[in-house]
């Protein structure tokens, strides 16, 4: 998004035109930021509200996603098929199951997150900022409207005597204050905040269904048994989230990552697992050099 910033509401433009700065930084962070030669220019924000559904059982939209219906395939997406070892043929018996990645859910999330993020950076760029620090993002559900809001907030800064950012896009980081100072000291320059959602749907096959419902004895007692399909789905969703994020890293490092997993069980073994991974993309700009070791202390109180 370039000139004219058609995406910004009028109020934002008006605010951005005034010449004093505002910053969401706390005073200690503000002090540390001045110390680094960073000048705050404005508190910048970005939003995106998305319609959000959960594709529960019975929703028409899951057609094409289910192995029972056949349909659209997503090349390159994770999928794993399980077949019944018993050879039963019955409508009640789930003769096959599948773990499948849900790229359309991931794409919608990425669109919401990405738009809100881009709008924040657009505001920052409008100020001639070089970067945005102390970024906060929030993904929340808005009242009872069936919508999800992606909200970004950060403090746009300029680097005293620094070059304009590559391609005009400011760098960004969740960090601020002494943490940022220390990262710079250790040789890591923030590039961007990155995040990705991975979503995997588990369609249980007979074995998984039975194991998750409580394994019954099928001609002899069985002991504890790993539920392979579900374990694998859990591992897969985490690996996918890391893969999606790594694709955005281009060889840079991800610092201070946080990983969150949310699962919704639909039936025994049938579930949707969502995994969000976010963190600071940092680039090493100098060789490793020692930072002084901290001094161990005990409080005198």
């Amino acid at each position: 998004m370039s000139d004219g910033s058609p995406d910004l509401p009028e109020a934002a433009v008006r605010r951005l035109e005034s010449n004093s700065f505002s910053s969401g930084l706390s005073v200690p962070d503000f002090a540390a930021c001045l110390d680094l030669g960073l000048q705050p220019v404005a508190l910048v924000q970005g939003f995106c509200v998305m319609q959000w559904g959960w594709y529960g059982a019975g929703s028409g939209y899951m057609r094409g996603a289910s192995p029972y219906f056949g349909g659209q395939q997503y090349p390159g997406a994770y999928a794993e098929t399980y077949r019944c070892p018993h050879g039963f043929v019955s409508t009640e018996h789930r003769t096959w199951g599948q773990n499948i990645e849900q790229p359309w859910v991931e794409a919608a999330w990425a669109q919401g997150y990405g738009s809100a993020y881009a709008r924040m950076l657009e505001e920052a760029a409008l100020h001639g900022a070089h970067g945005a620090i102390g970024v906060v993002d929030r993904v929340s559900h808005l009242a009872d409207t069936g919508t999800t809001e992606f909200h970004f907030l950060g403090t746009a800064v300029t680097v005293e005597g620094g070059p304009p950012p590559a391609g005009g896009t400011p760098w960004s980081t969740y960090l601020a204050g002494q943490r940022l100072t220390k990262s710079i000291e250790a040789g890591f320059m923030p590039v961007a905040v990155v995040a990705a959602l991975a979503s995997v749907r588990v369609w249980a096959y007979c074995m998984t269904e039975y194991l998750m419902e409580g394994a019954r004895t099928w001609g002899g007692p069985i002991g504890p048994q790993e539920v392979e399909q579900v374990s694998k789905a859990h591992m897969a969703v985490r690996q996918l989230a890391r893969k999606h994020v790594r694709e955005q890293l281009a060889g840079d490092a991800l610092h201070g990552a946080s990983i969150q997993v949310e699962k919704r069980e639909l039936a025994a073994g049938d579930e949707v697992i969502d995994c969000t991974l976010r963190g600071n993309r940092m680039r090493r700009f100098k060789e490793f050099d020692e930072v002084p070791a901290p001094r161990p202390t005990v409080r005198l109180t």
Partner: peptide
């Protein structure tokens, strides 16, 4: 710290990702 910040900002503006 200012010099290091500058160094970091320059490397970002000039060097390609690793």
């Amino acid at each position: 710290p200012r010099a290091e910040m500058l160094q970091g900002a320059r490397s970002l503006a000039e060097a390609p990702p690793p």
